[in-house]
Design a protein around this nucleic acid. Structure first.
Lengths: 144, 144
DNA sequence: TATATACTTGAAAAGCATTATTATTTGAGA
DNA sequence: TCTCAAATAATAATGCTTTTCAAGTATATA
């Protein structure tokens, strides 16, 4: 997965941002924990292993920057903090989330199947849909 | 809409909660502003007109109570605060939300059309779906 | 190479929505 | 009316996030 890290670093530099050790460490932490939907504090703790002197504010700042650049996405599970996930080419397309109310695991769903609903909404409500957030709450296969 | 207020008051008393003037005022405020998706601060300001001595903490407490009793539902638009909507018999069934990125208006969508997607998810992921939150972001008819 | 300029950072303070605490008040049944 | 658990107002505390600011670092320019 070396190419992913490289391409993200390139993306940063292309936009005129400096690739500091802190930003590099935060990017690495997110890449290494892909699929885990870590929150800011958790990312901070991972990053501190390689970069012990980093400040929490830098993590918040960098996550905001990466979100603005669409390199990561926010995910709000209503658990009191913001979680993040990597935007890869594969999950660039819409995907939904299953949230297990028992173990709090977050599962990504590749199935989309919202096309018809969206077309109906755009027609009936004359509303231009640009983004969607779809979350299902319930019990996952491990907890049933 | 007198019956709605009455039935909600009954519901409170049936569960052993006292019908205080504060709770009555908060219920009335939510009923009178049905469809507006007010946040806690906004509800507080409406309630203060009829009940000026009320404290903000009481509003938070009561909204939590009403949510626990499924008389209202939380709606998180990621705008930094929690919003609420009344659970009437009509909207008891699932409904989604359109959020206009221009005027920030929130439109309720009666169309459901999620049945097939949910069945596929339950089958493919062995996940029992108990609730869902679906939000579409874009531009509403008034702003296009 | 020296220097000006803009960008980053860590630490600490501030912001903001929400929750907990506590002393006081109140609703509703005996 | 009296009693007492429940509810309240005021305020402090909490937790996540953003801002401030002084200091450090990198990049461009002369």
């Amino acid at each position: 997965m070396e190419n992913l890290a490289d391409s993200l670093r390139e993306k940063l530099k292309d936009k005129g941002y400096k690739l500091t050790p802190q930003r590099r460490a935060i990017l690495d932490a997110i890449i290494e924990n892909q699929g885990k939907h870590l929150n800011t504090e958790e990312i901070y703790n991972v990053v501190k292993e390689k970069c012990p002197e980093i400040g929490l504010a830098t993590v918040y700042r960098t996550l905001q920057l990466l979100d603005d650049m669409s390199m990561i996405s926010r995910l709000n599970i209503d658990d009191g903090c913001m979680r993040y996930e990597l935007n890869t080419d594969e999950n660039e397309h819409q995907h939904h989330h299953l949230i297990c109310e028992v173990c709090n695991d977050i599962i990504e769903v590749e199935l989309d199947l919202l096309g018809y609903l969206e077309k109906e909404i755009e027609k009936k409500y004359n509303f231009i849909i640009k983004d969607r957030k779809v979350k299902f709450f319930g019990v996952c296969s491990k907890c049933r």
